[in-house]
Design a protein around this nucleic acid. Sequence first.
DNA 1: AATTCGAACAACCGCAGAACC
DNA 2: CGGTTCTGCGGTTGTTCGAAT
Length: 522
Amino acid sequence: MGNSSTAESEDGVLSADSPLSNDGDNFGGSSSGGIVLKKGPWTAAEDAILVEYVKKHGEGNWNAVQKHTGLARCGKSCRLRWANHLRPNLKKGAFTSEEERIIIELHAKMGNKWARMAAHLPGRTDNEIKNYWNTRIKRRQRAGLSLYPPDLCLQSLPENQQQLSSPRIYDGDKACDILQSNGYWAPNIMFDSLNNFRYAPAIPGIPGSVSMGNGFASPHSYGFNPQTIGVSGQAREPDEPMSDYGSGGVNEAPMFSRTQTDSCVNKSFQSFGLCYPYDTDHTKKLFSSDVNPDTPFMSDVTYSASEHFANAQKSELPSLQYQETGLGVWDPAPESFDSLVQSPLPGPLPSHCPSPGSSGLLEDLIYEAMALGRSENQSSALATPSNVSHGEVTDGSALRTCSTEFKGCIDRNSPSGNSMGSLFNRYTPTTGKSLEDDVTMHHVKSEVFDPSWILDGESKVDYLRPDAMLGSCWVEQSGPASKQRGSMAALLGDTSASASTRGFTSCSWNNLPPVCQISDIP
DNA sequence: AATTCGAACAACCGCAGAACC
DNA sequence: CGGTTCTGCGGTTGTTCGAAT
């Protein structure tokens, strides 16, 4: 198995003298022994041939198309052409607002399961949906907006979920599998090391608590309580009209963004359990067994976190937990869905640290780091970890515990741990207190930052720590590299770190130093 | 008017599971 | 039961077009 390309190139070959093998519109194509398969755009003639073939023989056996018709296309190409353009009942044209709404909801639940999503959108193809989504992501990333409407986010954390006992979803190396199955970059160095490593304890009551050993792919990562990510005065797509979802109130506090930063950052997020919330296996489970695939829409089905965790060992929750939520709940205005999604731009950054836009958690860290780098002196005045309680800016949420524990586990030795700690601080549920109200958080972050981590121009980043890994990834794969290099440098301590990060031309963790055994870490 | 940029779309590629032999 | 082929999926890349500069 797994050799379809070869199979197709061999089966789908066409003799060079075929009347269709060269119509002057050959975009290259593959050739083997004088047999040329055409690539590139399909012509009307080719379409007609394919349509005729399907009429006669039905769908399937696509490799036979070339054999029977002489069409200079491989079976895979035929299938794609048919599925995306030629099959009947295909809807053409722009997505309707209803379709957009469905797509967003589906994506919130399924992730990048385009084919499954397409099954819920009659006449639409997975490719269409994928393209739509990808362009939407790009647009929103540029605008620094989150992908999902606040309602989705808020509903994703039903109140009772806050009270759920923390699902300790630890499945050993499954964490790695989950990530990889998501198609996300999963640093071997991390998972190899962390298979037996509970980096942070599960936080009771905090689904998605960053438990490094088991929560890497936890969809509960949205447990980074959306409500607490205050957003006001946030960036908004210029072309977006205000919508009900952007009109203020609670809707002004959507989830934190995981859209602003690039995929690498997202992947880094995932590495922390701040991941994309969906799990492919999860969706498989949901739709293969729990949900009638013919169900018009899966939001008819209630997925509670407790149910999920009762049924799944892995952290397999849809990204956004609906409870008693149907389509009607999120009923946007007819305008594009884009207009419904709030920017996650966290509250005002320190004046000395202008943020070009919302960036989401990690990017916030970057700006934070920038700020720190610029105000090291100021920070140092407060920089004794002992005078900082990671939880003190919170109001008793479980995440405070998390922060505290994280501090205990990480901050001692890791500057990145500091960042992680501040991360926790920043996104610790503050029960309604938006971040703009939490300017003190910046102080906290500053306080825990310890420039002494840079020693003789060499970063003391502890590569044992997943958070320490973040930097190299951001630096080269995130947007404006130069800026983020500097940011990363600041995050890691100073320009020496920046220099060190410049060496990274890829995100491969293989470039990192060997990992020590950390399985004995309690 | 020319250039640049982004959005939308089309198609290809590699991988993996299913089906078949 | 193992190998091969087929099919489907998701990611990525390339092209085109229109708007903005």
